[in-house]
């Protein structure tokens, strides 16, 4: 995305206001910001729904896999670049709303069938995807009977079956309890380690997100305020608080410890309690 400005139909304030953002293959990017900052709009621009389905006016350039979004019809824009591999797949915050089948298997096959992937290949991918999200043995299960965390893992598995170049997880943990949340962040860690997909994770809470991503993008009022590795972004705790995203306690306390002369000044923020405690012990 380069210098993207977007307005929804009938609105004067831009939902995206000069956004430039590049996501490379295999990169894991966290996206945070207060409600109304433009996170969902940005995700929709990365799937072509903005502006193709929403209408509105878009200026600047959005290129998905090299195709210019504005000049390409939606069907063509999202058609696979490589055989059998989707360009973008998205999961949403409410895991239940993503269930389309009566069994986990049907849910997982749906997207890949639409891509025209051969049946045997889909079967093989379903096995792999279920193993990857640690739901082997749930192939015949009724999706609604699963826990929230399991449903969200099914949604991610269904995305994986499409082998997307870019996987967008829009607030994957906001409806989950702490166990479900831990399951999803563990899974994001393994998605990152696999190097197979670029992943964009939208999330309110920076604690878990910061430790899981290569880069952190913070949006405020449709503008990118930060786009850097988490350890750099989390140095600026005062600005983050002003924007309305809560920095991890360890980052805040680390800065306070520097100001109190307990720690030497550092260009790097502390992402978690273990890192801060190790530095304080030195």
């Amino acid at each position: 995305m380069r210098d993207v400005e977007f307005r929804y139909p009938g609105t004067s304030a831009p939902a995206l206001d000069g956004v430039s953002l590049t996501i490379s293959d295999g990169e894991v990017v966290g996206l945070a910001g207060p409600t109304g900052a433009g996170k969902t709009t940005l995700c929709m621009a990365l799937t072509g729904l903005v502006p193709h389905s929403t209408g509105g006016t878009l200026s600047g350039s959005v290129k998905l896999g090299g195709r210019e979004s504005r000049d390409t019809p939606l069907g063509e824009l999202l058609s696979p670049l490589d055989a059998d591999r989707a360009l973008v797949a998205v999961t949403f915050q409410d895991p239940e709303s993503q269930i389309v089948g009566m069994t986990v298997e049907e849910d997982l096959a749906f997207g890949a069938e639409n891509l025209g992937v051969p049946r045997e290949e889909i079967n093989r991918r379903i096995d792999e995807a279920l193993a990857f999200v640690r739901l082997d043995g749930f192939r015949e299960s009724f999706p609604y009977s699963l826990s929230g965390g399991q449903k969200q893992r099914v949604a991610i598995a269904a995305a994986i079956v499409m082998r997307p170049r870019l996987l967008i997880l829009d607030e994957p943990t906001s409806e989950l309890d702490p166990q479900g949340r831990a399951e999803i962040f563990e899974l994001i860690g393994r998605l990152a380690a696999s190097g197979e997909y670029a992943v964009l994770v939208v999330e309110h809470a920076l604690d878990d997100l910061a430790a899981a991503v290569d880069r952190l993008v913070i949006l405020e009022s449709g503008k990118v305020r930060f786009d850097a590795p988490p350890a750099e972004v989390l140095r600026d705790v005062d600005r983050l608080v002003e924007i309305g995203v809560r920095p991890p306690d360890a980052s805040v306390i680390g800065i306070a410890a520097e100001r109190a002369g307990l720690l030497p000044p550092s260009p790097i923020a502390f992402l978690d309690d273990a890192a801060l405690l190790a530095a304080l012990a030195r």
Binding site: D249, A256, L262, D273, L277, L280
Partner: peptide, 29 residues
């Protein structure tokens, strides 16, 4: 997180529960 940090270093953070208490505890130092 603030509580976990304070619990390991009560010498610095006393019995802080929250990040505000933990950063306040550092001021007198």
């Amino acid at each position: 997180q603030a509580f976990r940090i304070a619990r390991e270093r009560p010498d610095l953070f006393a019995s802080s529960l929250t990040v505000t208490q933990a950063t306040d505890a550092l001021r007198p130092v």
